[in-house]
C-alpha cells in the first residue's frame, strides 16, 4: 500500500489558552480529492497553516508525501501547491510578473508559456497591476500560481470565494483534469455544494476536532431521512419526543416534518396504529447532513 499523501497524527495547535485544533487525525490517500469542511473558526485554516509550517504545532505530528511538516518543510513546499483563502499578492507587481516570480522559486521550465496558457484559461490581462485587480482576479492569480509547477498535492482554502460561476466551473474542470493526472487535492471549504461536487471523501471539523471522516456517498446514505407525515386527524401527542427525531421537528395542524436519525423499525412501530393519510421519506441534502453534525 502506498504512503498516504497527508498523514496527520494527533496534531494540536493552541493559541495560548485558546483552542486552535485539537488532536487531529487524518489520512489522505494519493489521487484523492479530499474535502475538509467546517464553519468559520472551526480550525480549517489553522490546520492548513500548520501543514505548511506557517504555524508550528503545539503537539502531534504530520507528514506530507512522507516528509515531516516541520523538518522537511521546503521539500514539501516544492511538491505542493497552495491557494490561500484571501489572495493578497504583492500589489506593486503586474499579474505576469507575479507569476514569473513564483515560477522562479520552483524553477519551472518554460514558465512563460505555461503562465500565458493559464492566464488565457482564467481570462487575466498579463500586464495589469495587481493593485488594480478585483478580488476575484487576484484569486485567479492565486490559483494559477499554485498550479504552475504541476504539484503532487494541491491544498486549497476556500478557493471559490470571489470567483464568478463561470470561473468556478473552469477551476473545477482544471482540478478534475489535474486530479486525473495524479494530483491529490485537499479541499477546505465551508461551501458544501463545492465539496459535494468535487470530493470523494470529506472530514468534518468542529471546534478544532475532527468529528467525522466519510465518503460523500456514505454520508448521504447515512440513516438520516427527511420525513413528512400527514395524519387524518391531529398529530398524536408525544410523537415529537421519540428518540431519533432530530431538531427542527415542525408540527402544523395535521402534519409533521422532521429529520430521522434513528432505527427505522422503531419509527414504524411508533407510527403503527396511527391514522396516517400520507407519508413521504426523502434523502436529506448534504447541507442538512452537515447541520446534523453541527447541532
Amino acid at each position: 500500500m502506498s504512503t498516504p499523501v497527508i498523514q496527520i497524527s494527533d496534531l494540536t495547535r493552541r493559541y495560548g489558552r485558546d483552542r486552535g485544533i485539537d488532536k487531529i487525525n487524518l489520512q489522505v490517500e494519493e489521487g484523492e480529492i479530499f474535502g475538509f469542511i467546517g464553519p468559520n473558526g472551526a480550525g480549517k485554516s489553522t490546520t492548513i497553516r500548520v501543514l505548511l509550517n506557517l504555524l508550528f504545532p503545539t503537539a502531534g505530528s504530520a507528514r506530507i508525501m512522507g516528509f515531516d511538516i516541520v523538518r522537511d518543510s521546503k521539500k514539501i513546499r516544492s511538491r505542493t501547491g497552495y491557494i490561500p483563502s484571501e489572495a493578497s499578492p504583492w500589489p506593486d507587481m503586474a499579474a505576469r510578473e507575479f507569476l514569473l516570480y513564483c515560477a522562479s522559486f520552483y524553477g519551472v521550465p518554460r514558465a512563460d508559456r505555461k503562465i500565458i496558457e493559464l492566464m488565457e484559461v482564467f481570462d487575466i490581462e498579463p500586464g495589469r497591476k495587481i493593485s488594480n485587480l478585483s478580488s476575484g482576479n487576484r484569486k485567479k492569480l492565486s490559483i494559477i500560481q499554485s498550479l504552475l509547477h504541476s504539484p503532487g498535492l494541491l491544498i486549497v482554502d476556500e478557493p471559490t470565494t470571489g470567483l464568478d460561476p463561470l470561473m468556478q466551473q473552469r477551476f473545477f474542470d482544471l482540478l478534475r483534469s489535474e486530479n486525473r493526472r495524479g494530483m491529490t487535492v485537499f479541499f477546505s471549504s465551508h461551501t458544501l455544494s463545492d465539496v459535494q461536487m468535487l470530493c470523494g471523501r470529506v472530514a468534518i471539523i468542529k471546534e478544532g476536532r475532527i468529528i467525522n471522516v466519510e465518503a460523500i456517498e456514505t454520508l448521504r446514505k447515512k440513516q438520516l431521512k427527511n420525513i413528512r407525515i400527514e395524519f387524518i386527524d391531529t398529530v398524536p401527542e408525544n410523537l415529537a419526543d421519540l428518540p431519533g427525531m432530530e431538531n427542527g421537528v415542525s408540527v402544523s395542524g395535521k402534519s409533521m416534518k422532521f429529520t430521522w436519525s434513528g432505527d427505522m423499525k422503531s419509527l414504524i412501530a411508533a407510527l403503527s396504529g396511527k391514522d396516517i393519510a400520507d407519508i413521504t421519506v426523502e434523502e436529506p441534502s448534504l447541507e442538512e447532513i452537515f447541520m446534523h453534525y453541527y447541532n
Binding site: 505548511l52 509550517n53 506557517l54 518543510s73 521546503k74 521539500k75 513546499r77 516544492s78 505542493t80 497552495y82 490561500p84 484571501e86 493578497s88 499578492p89 504583492w90 500589489p91 513564483c102 522559486f105 520552483y106 492565486s142 500560481q145
Partner: peptide, 14 residues
C-alpha cells in the same frame, strides 16, 4: 501584515 507571507512561505524557500 501584507499577507504575502502566505505565498512566499508556501513556496520552496527556507
Amino acid at each position: 501584515y501584507g499577507r504575502t507571507a502566505e505565498f512566499l512561505l508556501s513556496w520552496p524557500v527556507t
